[in-house]
């Protein structure tokens, strides 16, 4: 069985664990860097990206940076921000593995949060997208494949073994995005 780590320092890690378990993989809550050695792939959940940075500290940040460059990683919302090369509003440190520029809280505050439905290149029709104080991807590098967009901005992207969403697929009943991640993990394990 595939072991999928979920960074569980802060955020909606439980919602991710539920989706992963529904798809038949084993979710593992990662709170210590040593645990990174035991997992086949990692999910960085939604939450507050500034809090993640704070709780990781310098050592945790370096170990995580090394991990995401070798094993499949999936970031949603704050997780997507953490993986980016460039973060704005305000400027903030990123792991720099995902070649994008991302803007925090780009759509406004909680009253501007929204649930939308839109097309995706994933098979199976329209995809529900739950946006909560969401960031916006404002630039993508040449190696990025766009799987879904909102108003011309990419919202679901892939770059090699990395998958990222500015919305929260973990809060939808539709498991296609998580299934896509598990496919990346299975391929990498081969």
């Amino acid at each position: 069985m595939m072991k999928i780590g979920i960074l569980a320092l802060q955020g909606d890690f439980e919602a991710h664990a539920n989706r992963i378990a529904e798809l038949g993989a084993e979710p593992v809550f990662v709170r210590k860097t040593e645990q990174l050695d035991e997992i086949d792939g990692l999910v960085i959940p939604g939450g507050e990206s500034s809090v993640f940075l704070n709780l990781l500290g310098d050592t945790g940040f370096e170990k995580l940076s090394a991990f995401v460059r070798t094993k499949p990683t999936f970031g949603t919302c704050a997780g997507c921000i953490l993986l980016a090369t460039e973060v704005e509003n305000p400027k903030q440190k990123g792991i720099g593995a995902l070649d994008i520029t991302v803007r925090r809280n780009a759509y406004g505050r909680q009253i501007h949060s929204a649930i939308l439905e839109g097309p995706t290149t994933l098979k199976g029709g329209l995809l529900e997208q739950v946006y909560i104080r969401a960031p916006r991807i404002e630039r993508v590098g040449p190696g990025i494949e766009v799987l879904a967009e909102r108003d011309g901005h990419p919202v679901l992207i892939r770059q090699g073994n990395l998958l990222a969403a500015t919305f929260h697929p973990e809060l939808s009943a539709d498991t296609r995005v998580h299934a896509e991640f598990l496919r990346l993990v299975a391929e990498c394990k081969k």
């Binding site: 569980a8 320092l9 802060q10 955020g11 909606d12 890690f13 439980e14 919602a15 939604g46 939450g47 507050e48 809090v51 919302c77 704050a78 909680q110 949060s113 929204a114 649930i115 739950v130 909560i132 104080r133 929260h168 809060l171």
Partner: peptide
């Protein structure tokens, strides 16, 4: 029920904090 889901969704993001 989407309004409720968004409201609970933000609370989910605050967990562990």
């Amino acid at each position: 029920g989407n309004g409720l889901r968004l409201k609970i969704g933000l609370a989910e993001m605050l967990k562990g904090g």
